[in-house]
Design a binder for these strands. Structure first.
Lengths: 158, 158
DNA sequence: GGCAGTCACTGCGCAAGGCAGTGACTGCGT
DNA sequence: ACGCAGTCACTGCCTTGCGCAGTGACTGCC
């Protein structure tokens, strides 16, 4: 019977592996759809309503706006998304996800979606709250940490 | 006050964002160390004792063995790891992580490590158990699903 | 003792992405 | 009103990580 401390250590070790294997799964799905992982990632952001702005999406994907233009070219060619003019600002674009290949996508994600669904259904309120809190705060922490990495040339700020 | 169902939905939505932002954070750390994200990922697997075999690591990283050879070249050049002959099988190699840049790495990870540590310390046993279970089972599910994706050409298996 | 299988490795080609520059457009300042 | 700095998506050019297919070295099974 593991104590609190051992559990925390186990969680800290399991976390990076989970992220790694999940990323690999995404890559496998992308390959099956004859699409790059970045395209798939962008499609998720688009479909999730996170943003529809090229510049913002490029930032979230961690690529330059130049690279994002080609990414969009590919996504249109693969019928994943489409460009639309922004009536409020003629410099900008508004991106829209296309439903074309969503069925295919949902099918590929089905096993994982089922796993997540079943696993979450087994948790009680307190456990779910903890999980959601950890994930959302972790997302914010990761985003903030990405843009504000400590200076490795300095000594450790004990 | 969200009910069980809303919490599960929130978790399902928060999960991919967490994975995405974490991957982006890793990429930022890698860039700071003048190293590719794949090198960093490999170093983690190596340092975590997951495996020290080139073929196995290539599989875990999702790249070919040929690409892994160049990856190793870079990692040796960057003083992240080194090759060593396997005395039991002269075809094989045994890889060893080098401690050289570990301090730098730990420093870059410090903010996230601190966040994770603090967040986990706030959870009770039941919550931690749920989190660890979700992560470990999720890792296994993702690995299995990667190698066994459903066939999208077939009709939906209602 | 031969032989299929596996190991790390290599030449070649591809394509995703960075960088720097471009034209179109915006809104602020005077 | 008008210029001007800033921002938008976009475009050549280049680098580079990776896949593919083939190679020599080595293993263990008949």
């Amino acid at each position: 019977m593991p104590d609190q401390r051992e559990l925390a250590t186990a969680a800290a070790l399991a976390l990076p592996r989970f992220v790694g294997s999940t990323a690999l799964f995404h890559a496998a799905v992308a390959e099956r759809m004859a699409v790059t992982p970045t395209e798939l990632h962008c499609l998720h952001l688009l479909h999730g309503g996170v943003s529809d702005s090229p510049t913002e999406l490029a930032r979230l994907l961690g690529i330059s706006t130049g690279a994002f233009t080609r990414l969009l070219d590919r996504m249109e060619r693969h019928r994943l998304a489409e460009r639309a003019p922004d009536p409020a600002d003629r410099r900008r674009l508004v991106l829209r996800p296309l439903p074309d290949r969503m069925v295919e996508l949902a099918e590929l994600y089905a096993p994982m979606a089922r796993f997540v669904g079943e696993r979450l259904a087994r948790l009680d309120r307190r456990q779910l709250t903890a999980l959601v809190g950890f994930l959302t705060d972790g997302t914010a922490a990761a985003e903030q940490a990405s843009g504000n990495l400590p200076d490795v040339t300095q000594a450790i700020t004990s």
